[in-house]
Every structure is written in structure tokens, then in C-alpha cells.
């Protein structure tokens, strides 16, 4: 996001739409996971794309990995 007051109006509208979408999606997803949804949602309303990137990196990806590990552990147990 560059600081340009000369940006056309439609660009502002697009930016606002992107931010609103990002914030809303982060809020919903984080609420479903029970992880600081207000923080992610509100921060997601202010800048792009850092919140999404960090959210994926810090919340979604580790959870995904942990789930895979649990499944692997379960398989191990069954095999024994």
C-alpha cells in the first residue's frame, strides 16, 4: 500500500473492499478456531496482505501440521 493521495476513487473502493473481505474472513475463521478473532479481524481491516500471511503462517499452517501428526500417530497405534 503506497501513500498516494492521487489514487483514483475506484482504487480506494477496491482497497476498502479487499480490507473488508480480509477482515471479515479472518474474523470468521479465527472465531471458528477459537483463536483471537477480534485481533485478527480488526487488524485485517487495516492493512493488506500482512495479516493474512501471518495468520496462515501462525495459525492455519501449524494447526494443519499438528492434525497431520496426530493422524500419523493414530495410524501408528492402529498398526501396532
Amino acid at each position: 500500500m503506497k501513500e498516494q493521495s492521487s489514487m483514483p476513487l475506484w482504487a480506494w473502493a477496491v482497497l476498502a473492499a479487499v480490507l473488508m473481505t480480509q477482515g471479515a474472513l479472518l474474523f470468521r475463521d479465527a472465531r471458528a478456531r477459537g483463536r483471537w478473532h477480534w485481533f485478527w479481524g480488526l487488524w485485517g481491516m487495516t492493512t493488506f496482505p500482512l495479516p493474512t500471511v501471518l495468520y496462515l503462517l501462525l495459525v492455519v499452517f501449524p494447526e494443519h501440521r499438528r492434525k497431520r501428526k496426530e493422524i500419523a500417530e493414530k495410524d501408528e497405534k492402529i498398526r501396532k
Binding site: 480506494w12 476498502a16 480490507l19 473488508m20 477482515g23 471479515a24 480488526l42 481491516m45 487495516t46
Partner: peptide
């Protein structure tokens, strides 16, 4: 959110 969005823009 709308407040925050407005302020940040």
C-alpha cells in the same frame, strides 16, 4: 470495523 477501516484509510 467500519470505524477502524475509516481511520486507517
Amino acid at each position: 470495523s467500519l470505524f477502524i477501516l475509516g481511520f486507517s484509510l
